[in-house]
Design a protein around this nucleic acid. Structure first.
Length: 357
DNA sequence: GTCCTGTTTT
DNA sequence: AAAACAGGAC
């Protein structure tokens, strides 16, 4: 007989402390999948409004599959990690075309879906279909790492395998769904990264980290991110009621979102508009120019630090066709302010547009 | 390693 | 104000 103290304590704690969240009252795999993709790398408080918007707009997976991708990206605007939105949409289409609109119902098959990795596959398999497979997310690493005193690095392959084995060993086979929810909720509310509430903890007695005073040091996470700095000189070009926009290409940040024509520089932002290639081409046709290098925006990502300036150009309306030609040749678009509002944009762009008003 | 934004800590 | 942190897929 295995020692079930850990699992049963978590299950009791969960029954008493769990939050009532909309995706917890269903076995509908579409709703569970949607919530899990939105909550990847995202806290409940930030993801909840997006979950509600998406479910209202797309009540069924067929609704999501048939939506234009710009609409999906616009709805995702502000949530970050936009590949999740692209994968979400592609996955919905794949399920309609390759699975007759029905979700796969095993961990193994779920893992093949776009945007579904080991965590999300385990979550859907257990929550929707009751499969006995343990989830492994940041909360689970922390709770297991502390309670059992695992000192392996969670970012190494060896560490991950050790945690996976331990997680599946502790999993309640009677109720894998409740157990998975319980350990993650426990990590989110009780066994938090900073200042966990050890004094009121029902697992305190058997906790290795508490006993050895290692709560602050577990789990072990090595590996550092090196941040590179980039300089974006944005051109905010208007002509009559039209604005020049550009959809961001593959191979860089914010793929599929819209921003403005951009001249990126090395080492520093441009200090003079005459250094902009665009200025040379349109110098004689510019009515009004605003250049405010003092209002530089700083935008921080995990791996990049971006400094951005926005230079406003107002082109005389009689040169619209000339501008239109340049826009088309450069693979960009001229859109109205309303259209621009409706497009999915990075936070940096939304912030600039808000500040403009 | 590459992908984002919001919150917490310093 | 800046840095650190939180949160998985590819």
């Amino acid at each position: 007989m295995k020692n079930r103290h850990f699992a049963s304590t978590l299950l009791h704690w969960y029954a008493k402390h769990k939050r009532d969240l909309p995706w917890r009252n269903t076995h509908n795999p579409y709703i569970i999948w949607l919530s899990e993709i939105i909550l990847q790398q995202t806290r409940v408080a930030q993801g909840l409004p997006y979950f509600e918007k998406f479910l209202e707009k797309f009540p069924k997976i067929s609704d999501l599959a048939s939506a234009p991708s710009d609409e999906v990206m616009r709805l995702w605007q502000g949530l970050g990690y936009y590949s999740r939105a692209r994968n979400l949409h592609q996955c919905a289409k794949d399920i309609m075309t390759m699975h007759n609109g029905e979700f796969p119902n095993t961990y193994k098959e779920l893992l093949k879906l776009k945007g579904v990795g080991s965590y999300t596959a385990a979550a859907i398999a257990s929550f929707a279909f009751g499969e006995a497979v343990a989830v492994l997310d940041g909360n689970v690493f922390r709770v297991l790492g502390r309670y059992f005193g695992v000192s392996e690095d969670i970012s190494s392959g060896q560490g991950k395998r050790a945690f996976e084995a331990l997680a599946n060993e502790q999993l309640s086979n009677e109720n894998p769904a409740e157990y998975n929810q319980a350990i993650m909720e426990f990590g989110a509310l009780q066994c938090t990264p900073k200042n966990p509430d050890c004094t009121s903890c029902s697992l305190q007695e058997g906790c290795f980290a508490f006993k050895e005073n290692l709560v602050r040091d577990l789990p072990v996470k090595l590996g550092k991110v090196k941040v590179k700095t980039r300089y974006f000189n944005y051109l905010y070009i208007r002509c009559g009621s039209q604005i020049v926009v550009r959809q961001r290409p593959a191979g860089d940040i914010w793929q599929g979102l819209y921003d403005f024509p951009l001249e990126e520089t090395e080492g520093a932002l441009l200090q003079d508009i005459e250094e902009l290639t665009f200025f040379g081409q349109f110098e004689s046709k510019i009515e009004k120019i605003e250049f405010e290098p003092e209002s530089t925006y700083k935008h921080i990502l995990t791996h990049q630090r971006i400094f951005a300036n926005f230079v406003t150009f107002v082109i005389q309306e009689k040169y619209l066709s000339k501008l239109d030609q340049w826009v088309n040749e450069s693979g960009m678009e001229l859109v109205s302010a309303d259209k621009l509002e409706s497009l999915g944009k990075p936070k940096l762009i939304v912030k600039f547009l808000t500040d403009e008003k």
